[in-house]
Structure formats: C-alpha cells, structure tokens
Nucleic acid binder design. Structure first.
Length: 448
DNA sequence: CGGATGGCGC
C-alpha cells in the first residue's frame, strides 16, 4: 500500500492516494507512520502547511506517533511557505517529544535560515552539526554553498568549494548548478563558465537546470544569440519538459523588443501541455501588458483566477507597469493602494514601476511625492527619480537626490551619476558638478 | 516515507 500511496503522491494525485488508503483499511491494512509521512510531505508540497498539519492530527488520532521524518517533512513544508517561526517551533517540538533530529533536520533548518537572509544563524546550525558529531551529508555542503551565494558571500562559497575539493569532496552536478547560479548572480560569469567546463570534464552530464542557469547567465551578459543556442541544444536533447526555460527565453525576447518571437515561445508554453503555473502565467501576462493590450490582460487574469491560479507580487507589478504604459495612472495608484491592504505591501518593484511611469510622462512632482511617501526605497527607486529629474533638466534636485542615495550607502549605476554631472555642467553649474564628483569619490573611499 | 539546484516584475 505504501508504495502505491507514494507513487500517487508523487504524481500529485492526493485524492487517489486517499482512496487507496481507505481501500487498504477495508481489507485490514492500517496506514502506518510511513503512509502518514508520505501524505504529510505531499500535502505540504501541493496544498499547504495547514493541510500537512491536519494529516499530523489524523495520524495522532489514529494512535501513530510522529517520527523524525514526519517532522522533517513539516519543517521543509514550513520553509517552502516561508514560515520561519513555524520551522523553529517544529524543531523545538521535535526535541520536546524526544525525537532525535537527524542530519536532514539540521540541513532543512540551515536552509531555512539562509532563505530568510540569516546566514549567521545558518552557520551556527552548521557548527552545531559538527559539534554534535553528526555525520554530514553531501547536501549539507550544497546547502551551505547555495546559502552563502544567495546571501552575498559568493567568495566564501568559492573558498568552501575549493577547500572541500582538497579534502576529497567530489562535487555533484547539483553542486555545480548551485555554484554556476551563484557566480552568475554576483556578476562573475567568467568563473561560472570555468565551472561549466569543469563539470563536463568530471564526467557530469548537464541537466535541464544547468542549461537554464547557463542560458540565463548568457542573457544577463547580453549574449543573446549564445543563450538562444543553448536553448536550442537543450530542446534537441529533450530537456524542455517544463516551462522554466521557455519563460526565460520569452521574457528576454520581450525585454529586447523581439515581440513576435516572444509570442512564438509563449505559444509553445500554452500548446505544449505544460501546467500553467503562476510564473508562466506572469510571463504571458507580461506580454499582453507590454503590448498595451490591457483588456486582454484583464480577461486573462480573470480567467486564471477563476481557474484557481493565485496572482502574486509579480502579477501586480506587471499590471501596474502595464497601466502606467497605457497612461492609466489613476488605476495604477488604486491598484497599488489595494495591494497594500491585501498584503502585497513591500512590493517595491511595483512602486518603482509607478514612479518610473510618472517620470516618463513628465509628472515629476507627482513622482517626487510618491517617492517621498514610500516606506522603503532601493537603488532602483533612486535611479528612476534621478533619471527622471535629469530628463526634466532639474539637475540640482537630481544631484541632491543622488547624494542622499550615496549617503544612505546605496549605489546607483555609474551611467546615472554621469547624467547628473554632465547635466550640471551643461547648465553651467561646473562648481556643483565638481562638488558632486568629489562627494562620489569620497563615498567610494569610505565604503570600500 | 523526507531533505539541496533552474523560470516571471522596475
């Protein structure tokens, strides 16, 4: 029965799995801890953490005690849904129940801390593993390397990787995938390339994840044709069994103005029978919004939501950008305000999109007002405003903003700084231009 | 029976 339940759960057929269990009970087979653990993992993955909990209760009611695997599945579920405190509670609960955590409990907890941007605490978990003399799993190192990369410690991740190799650790394909991704994200595409060669030399065969990662890396460095070549190779090898890579390609095409081609690839997503999840939906939705087909976009959104797809912060940001592009600033503003009441606040990208739209249409005072009322701002917010002010030839205001951005420890693009300085000069404000330049230099010295 | 890697927005 357990084998059957497991394979149904893997295939997301939870109702069928439940039927098998009921049938089993009818012929005298009682579900055991393995059956429940399988169910808990599947419910956490496909339905939600509460669904996982309800199985836990069912299990306890049936007189079966949870074990370490039960808790690991729940902790992983809590991590998936970004519930840090729930992870910690579960870990404590496990200890209280005198269930000894295994390496995977620690791995999962460590991964959870990394995911929440708490690398120090994650590292403490790792030290705990060593202290308690629990033998590590290769995944422990993979999680460490990934966590370090994702939290801006790419250099440390590289050092760890190299020292592990010296100690006889044989990197797996996942290890390379993680490293390549991390290196690319931190702007070290050249090192990523080296690792791509290395993994092949070591006899690994790149998988769909490797291809998608490398392809995105190419796009990041504006090597579009190179990336498309990788995609073609990936398709030839039959590695496009999901929409992941198609989304990357389509959004690159859209961003570079190759609308017709983007349309083509999105067509594949729709006709290939892939499950349209929120990410692929957003990619398609973005096409309609960028083309200014807001009516079609709304229809699509309506249909998707009726079909049970839940929009996320990406959906909202795309919509707001679309509304701005079509000049519907009032509706964009309303949507933004609605967003903050429905829990999508801190959607900085959407707000940035809005001020960008306002700046592009010369509504600088309105943009400034919004910018000042935002509770958080990032370097994009500043860049957008700075560029907008320069375009309106309000160079003094732009330089003031630029300096306050730098004082806040945020860095904006060199080209944006250039625009301000050149602008000041073009107005004959040579003295101010020089002042800004020296302040930028000073900030550089102080920060690095 | 669980647990690590890839896709979308300014």
């Amino acid at each position: 029965m357990n084998v059957c339940v497991a394979s149904l759960c893997k295939a997301k057929q939870l109702e069928k799995a439940e039927i098998v269990i009921v049938d089993g009970i009818r012929i005298g087979l009682q579900p055991d801890v393995v059956t429940y653990n399988t169910l808990i993992a599947a419910y956490c993955r496909f339905v939600g953490i509460d669904a996982g909990y309800s199985i836990l209760h069912r299990m306890k009611d049936a007189g079966i005690n949870p074990d370490v695997i039960t808790y690991n599945a729940l902790i992983a579920g809590a991590t998936r849904y970004s519930l840090l405190s729930k992870c910690l509670d579960l870990f404590d609960e496990m200890l209280e129940m005198r269930i000894l955590p295994d390496i995977w409990s620690y791995n999962t907890l460590m991964n959870c801390f990394f995911k929440f941007g708490k690398p120090d605490e994650a590292y403490r978990v790792f030290q705990d593993i060593l202290l308690k003399n629990i033998s590590v799993h290769s995944a422990t190192f993979n999680i460490l390397i990934n966590g370090l990369c994702m939290n801006g410690y790419t250099e440390n991740a590289l050092m760890l990787f190299r020292s592990l190799k010296c100690h006889g650790f044989i990197p797996q394909l996942v290890t390379y995938n993680i490293l390549i991704h991390g290196l690319c994200k931190s702007g070290r595409g050249n090192v990523a390339r080296e690792f791509l060669n290395e993994l092949v030399e070591l006899g690994h065969i790149p998988n769909a994840i490797t291809y998608t990662t490398v392809m995105k890396c190419c796009f990041r460095y504006r090597q579009f044709e190179e990336g498309l070549k990788i995609f073609a190779e990936m398709r030839n090898k039959g590695y496009t069994y999901d929409a992941f890579a198609y989304c990357t390609v389509a959004s690159m095409l859209l961003k570079t103005g190759r609308i017709t081609e983007a349309n083509e690839y999105l067509g594949y997503i729709i006709t290939s029978g892939f499950t349209i999840d929120i990410v692929s939906f957003n990619t398609i939705f973005n096409l309609y919004c960028k083309e200014g087909q807001l009516d079609n976009a709304y229809t699509l959104l309506y249909e998707a939501e009726n079909g049970g797809l839940e929009s996320d912060k990406y959906t909202h940001a795309i919509l707001i950008d679309g509304l701005c592009r079509t000049g519907n600033f009032q509706e964009a503003q309303q949507q933004l305000n609605r967003m903050s009441v429905t829990g999508f606040d801190s959607n900085l990208v959407a707000w940035n999109s809005f001020i960008n739209g306002l700046c592009k249409t010369g509504q600088l005072d309105y943009a400034t007002h919004i910018f000042e009322s935002m509770d958080t701002r990032d370097s994009v917010s500043y860049s957008t405003m700075v560029r907008g002010l320069c375009q309106a030839r309000r160079f003094r205001a732009a330089s003031k903003l630029l300096l306050s951005c730098i004082r806040g420890g945020m860095n904006i693009l060199k080209s944006d700084k250039r625009i301000v300085i050149d602008g000041l000069r073009s107005c004959g404000l040579t003295h101010e231009a020089r002042k800004v330049q020296s302040k930028i230099q000073m900030a550089k010295l102080l920060h690095y």
